[in-house]
């Protein structure tokens, strides 16, 4: 009997009522809707999956947190980006170009190799990668170990999931375009439950990239005040 429970525990099929959540250090993503959903923002280390179409604002969503995380003059690394990152945009956002590396490997193998090396090197804060092909469980595990070693995090950006199995990401987000910004959904999060689609308003960071006539609609869209819950 005991053996059975042990076995189930190892398989992570038993839920403990007295289980305490480990403390995860997070930093604000710069969007309060996302912060409240993720209880503080993106974790400082880990493998994060972003499922999104290209050009709806997926990178713009990450930029504020990328900037905020880098307090020690470490590298931001772009691996196999779909097109060349624009230096003008980065500078405008406040990035130091001397700390940005742009790597274009040709094969999936090389993308993963480069990502792992960068993550564990200890001189990178964030790695953004755009893999070409389906990923495997062991590849994500390796990236996670590398993240822990180098105290860094990686964002894996892709258009859709191609694997049939569930991968051990620390966080997986799906993004959809919305007139006032983005609609996001937490597919999977460690030590927490998934969510439904919720709106992220990008008006504050990107006033030009929001449809103007949506302002009126936004009034009807009641957004919870981030501290409201605590006050009650």
């Amino acid at each position: 009997m005991n053996k059975l429970i042990e076995y189930l525990e190892n398989k992570q099929l038993v839920w403990h009522g007295a289980y305490k959540k480990p403390q995860i250090t997070t930093s604000s993503s710069g969007y309060h809707e996302l912060d409240s959903q993720l209880e503080g923002g993106f974790a400082a280390t880990g493998v994060i999956e972003i499922l999104s179409d290209i050009a709806i604002g997926e990178l713009r969503l990450l930029l504020p947190s990328l900037l905020k995380q880098n307090t020690q003059q470490k590298f931001w690394i772009f691996i196999a980006a779909p097109a060349c990152v624009n230096a003008q945009m980065l500078v405008k956002q406040g990035f130091d170009l001397n700390k940005v590396l742009f790597i274009q490997p040709t094969t999936q193998q090389e993308i993963l190799w480069a990502a792992e090396l960068c993550l564990k090197s200890g001189c990178c804060c964030s790695v953004l990668m755009w893999p070409h092909k389906a990923l495997d469980v062991h590849q994500i595990k390796r990236l996670q170990l590398a993240c822990e070693k180098g105290n860094s995090r990686t964002f894996i950006l892709r258009q859709q999931r191609t694997e049939s199995i569930s991968l051990p990401f620390d966080l997986s987000l799906s993004l959809k375009a919305n007139e006032s910004g983005l609609l996001a959904k937490v597919n999977k999060r460690r030590y927490a439950w998934p969510s439904e689609y919720f709106a992220i308003n990008m008006q504050a960071h990107w006033p030009e990239l929001v449809k103007q006539n949506t302002l009126k609609q936004a009034l009807h869209n009641v957004i919870e005040f981030p501290f409201a819950r605590e006050i009650i």
């Binding site: 274009q104 090389e110 090396l117 960068c118």
Partner: peptide
């Protein structure tokens, strides 16, 4: 290390 494995041209920096 990156350059050794991927080639010099694959590892770049952005310049304004």
């Amino acid at each position: 290390q990156l350059q050794a494995k991927l080639g010099d041209k694959q590892v770049t920096q952005l310049q304004l």
